[in-house]
Design a protein around this nucleic acid. Structure first.
Lengths: 210, 210
DNA sequence: AAAGCGTGCAAGCAAGTGCTTGCTTTATGG
DNA sequence: CCATAAAGCAAGCACTTGCTTGCACGCTTT
């Protein structure tokens, strides 16, 4: 791995656990295994290094998994939850640190907010498609529904290591726990398989048995 | 206001917008309008001052508004959302900053997490009572449901000034937008009034018309 | 009036921090 | 084999930051 990349990775790592004030150039250089002077020769200033490292980290986000034409909302939403929760959990340190420094450097926090924003939009559009095809109730607020599910994932990813015993279930279980609730919330049938009478996963069919 | 209190308030204010590293004793003293030396004479060290200020802030949380015996879930939940969202919004700076410094000082972040934790417990217990009295479906996961609603409120409070145009509705509208979704999610009728045939607020009755 | 207490002020110290300079070492490639 | 570029090393500079010291001023209590 070349020196620039080593520095970028080290910068991100140190930033995650110390914030931008705590991420000293000496420490970043040490973590990267290069001399402090080299850092300045490559990036000019600490601020430049940090912004580049953060932008690089913020640009990585998962590819869309929600299909253009919905078929099995339960399965598709569960997979979407899984993917995005995993991504949020991986980035939780950066996100938390950036959010904590929002008042000091709003533009840094802003760049980290982009990925969740895109995800919520994606979900919102999918919900509209569900409704168009009659797979969900006509009168729910798609924006609010997207915000609710996204918010649940977000606070799961952010809160789990701060309050370890708050959630009664493991992180991998979250999609299976949340999706049935969500499906009911938007008045959605549990999917085409159930309509054909094939009993799907019982934890996913509760929306129909009231 | 006496000097100690002025210092505690100033410390919290500065901490909110600069974090514990950025909250220098000189700046806190200046903000409080007292001499820096006085700060040390009262609290001994910067760390002691900050911990006391934070603990003091974390101990303030809203009184419970969920009744022992549920009557009108829609109204009661909406009020609960309103109260807790307002509280989360008021404390959003402290919460964000503490969360951002979780890796550096876990105990600080922990103390801020207590209020949301209590709130979620409160909601969870209320949901169990709803179910006992037949006001909600028998088979939803109360822990997950509480986490979902709480998560939606949490990320609304934290995210709104980071991503101002993400939410399609004003913060005051959040309860009215979220509660109907949530009621459907837990399979709850919109309340005793509807059972008696009196049409309640139409945005709150969608759970029954599937 | 004296004594004590809380506060302000000026100065400073030791450690850390962003960044620079000047020099040596070590590949890399023509 | 030598020139060029990239990296290391030692030192240091200006500035911040937590915290201390010594002293003067004013207020309350006895």
């Amino acid at each position: 791995m070349d020196v620039r990349e080593k520095l970028l990775h080290a910068a991100l790592r140190v930033f995650e656990e110390a914030g931008s004030r705590g991420a000293t150039t000496r420490r970043i250089a040490g973590e990267a295994g290069v001399n402090e002077v080299t850092l300045f020769r490559h990036f000019g200033s600490k601020a430049a290094l940090l912004t580049e490292a953060l932008q690089c980290a913020a640009s990585r986000d998962p590819a869309s998994v929600l299909p253009e034409t919905p078929r099995d909302p339960a399965a598709e939403l569960a997979e979407w939850c899984r993917v995005h929760l995993a991504h949020l959990r991986r980035s939780r340190s950066v996100i938390r640190t950036c959010m904590g420094e929002f008042e000091q450097a709003p533009e840094m926090a802003g760049c980290v907010g982009e990925a969740p924003a895109r995800a919520a939009d994606e979900l919102h559009d999918y919900l509209l498609r569900l409704r168009e095809r009659g797979l969900a109730a006509a009168e729910f607020d798609a924006r609010a529904a997207a915000a609710m599910l996204m918010g649940a994932l977000f606070s799961d990813a952010m809160g789990r290591d701060i309050m370890p015993d708050r959630f009664g279930y493991a992180p991998e279980e979250a999609p299976a726990k949340l999706v049935p609730l969500f499906l009911r919330a938007i008045g959605a049938a549990p999917g085409p398989r159930a309509e054909r009478g094939e009993a799907a996963d019982p934890t996913l069919t509760q929306a129909s048995d009231r």
